[in-house]
Write a protein that binds this DNA or RNA. Structure first.
Length: 468
DNA sequence: TTTTGAGTTGTTCGA
DNA sequence: GTCGAACAACTCAAA
């Protein structure tokens, strides 16, 4: 019996994996393969934090496969060529994968499918990474949604996501395994220096850890989700984002697990966050270069300031605004940042510093373990005002008020900026008002004064209106 | 085709 | 200290 090749991409799991089930068919031998591709045109190279995660996630996937009598073939190079090689080495006559939605991947997959079909092989992409395919959700007029609430209302009127697929208990092996790299060959982990200590302390990549995190969240935190999800000092969010980004868990698994426990306002709010992910992918599908091009074309003439100095202070968490700096230090240390704080630091970069949102998007891409081509670009454009359903231009976060509102005791800020530990709660978000401010080499002075920066931003955004 | 209601996450000012 | 209004009209989606 001829083998099937199952191409793992951003779906590093065995449960609820349609491509894997399709490959297995009626008990055919399966060749699981992952390709590290930094050569195909148009593909965005993975960021450093994502590479760290990928190493561990692939390790976990390989271990799961070996426990089922199989293994993961690791190969490097342009995917279309490598797929053909691996298929030939194993005598595979069918290739299955779960769909990706960015332009470069879609074009690559279409070429590959054509090439395989031309040689008489089966090639099929399946729905494994979204609740609803982008072409399944349309307005009454048949167009794509540009407003989230209408989009999500339409999704909720569609049939609920179906049952999840079980993980296969065993996977028939091919007669002979072909060549494979080792993970060490790929040098995905940082060595000189090893900056991943904070990530190791924070995260456990892999499908089993993802499932555990989901059930822990549903058991312990969902009930309080609506009240506490905006408080960065409280572990009130699911922290599933990197697991989702690598497909160690599917949105359908999350949906089913959450709704099976009964609907509540908290459940609905949590599902809405999955809805934002769906909306992001919908936008990505309909706008190929969401991470580079302004969704609203009038922003092409926005007078961004090209200031490497303020950008670098922002990256390193040395802006002088505690909630901003805490967020960027959390990101640098753990590869993750609380959602509320992401909005605050993004508003600060694009509005207080007037730095192009793409610079922030690139930094997040490199440093986030959950870097996602749809969510990251959509989120940045949303805050900057250039995106779909974006914030009005006058909505400029005040980093002091945001800090005091969402981190009232300063616990979050002190956790990431221990230098501020001696300040009372009243001053922790405005340390410059202390009788004896900290020396600038201990904690920096503000690089801009928010009131003046806000006025400057309003003028810049108004200029956009007039020129448009 | 035209009309109408609605619209994630905010801040500041002045009464 | 608290509250409503203004910010700026605009785009989208559906009737």
């Amino acid at each position: 019996m001829s083998a099937s090749l199952v191409w793992f991409r951003n779906d590093l799991r065995l449960a609820d994996n349609p491509a894997l089930i399709a490959g297995l068919g009626s008990g055919r031998p399966v060749v699981p393969v992952y390709i590290f591709d930094e050569e195909s045109p148009g593909l965005r190279p993975m960021g450093a934090a994502s590479r760290w995660w990928l190493h561990h996630s692939l390790h976990a996937l390989d271990a799961s496969l070996r426990a089922r009598g199989s293994r993961l073939i690791l190969r490097r190079g342009p995917a279309e060529q490598v797929i053909a090689e691996v298929a030939a080495e194993h005598g595979a006559t069918a290739v299955y994968w779960n769909r990706a939605y960015d332009q470069a991947a879609r074009e690559r997959d279409a070429r590959l499918k054509q090439a395989l079909n031309d040689r008489g092989a089966v090639a099929e992409g399946l729905k494994g990474n979204l609740l609803y395919e982008p072409w399944e959700v349309k307005t009454a007029a048949g167009s794509a949604f540009k407003v989230f609430s209408a989009f999500w209302r339409a999704c909720r009127e569609l049939p609920s996501p179906g049952a999840t697929l079980p993980a296969p208990k065993t996977l028939p092996a091919p007669a002979k395994w072909g060549a494979s790299d080792t993970l060490a060959d790929w040098n995905l982990l940082p060595t000189a220096p090893d900056w991943a200590g904070g990530m190791r302390a924070t995260w456990t990549p892999g499908e089993a850890a993802a499932a555990h995190r989901l059930s822990t969240f549903l058991d312990n935190a969902l009930a309080n989700y609506r009240q506490a999800r905006d408080l960065p000092a409280v572990p009130a969010t699911s922290r599933l984002s990197p697991h989702l980004a690598f497909g160690e868990i599917s949105p359908r698994q999350i949906w089913r697990a959450a709704t099976t426990r009964g609907m509540s306002a908290a459940t609905e709010k949590f599902l809405t966050e999955l809805g934002w992910r769906e909306f992001s992918y919908n936008l990505l599908f309909h706008n190929g270069d969401l991470s580079r091009r302004n969704f609203r074309a009038e922003f092409d003439s926005f007078p961004w300031l090209d200031d490497e100095g303020t950008l670098e202070a922002w990256r390193r968490g040395r802006t002088g605004y505690p909630i901003v700096d805490a967020g960027l230090r959390e990101l640098w240390t753990t590869g993750w940042m609380h959602n509320r704080v992401r909005m605050i630091v993004a508003s600060f970069l694009t509005k207080d510093l007037l730095v192009d949102w793409r610079a922030g998007e690139r930094w997040f891409w490199d440093t986030l373990v959950d870097a996602d081509p749809a969510n990251n670009a959509m989120g940045w454009q949303w805050v900057a005002g250039s995106g779909a359903d974006a914030a009005p231009y006058f909505r400029i976060f005040n980093p002091v008020l945001q800090g005091e509102k969402f981190d009232p005791r300063g616990d979050y800020v002190r956790r990431w900026i221990p230098e501020l530990g001696s300040l009372p709660a009243k001053l922790v978000h405005r340390p410059w008002e202390a009788d004896e401010p900290l020396p600038p080499d201990v904690y920096p002075e503000r690089i801009v004064e928010h009131g003046a920066a806000r006025d400057r931003a309003l003028i810049a955004f108004r200029s956009l209106k007039k020129s448009a």
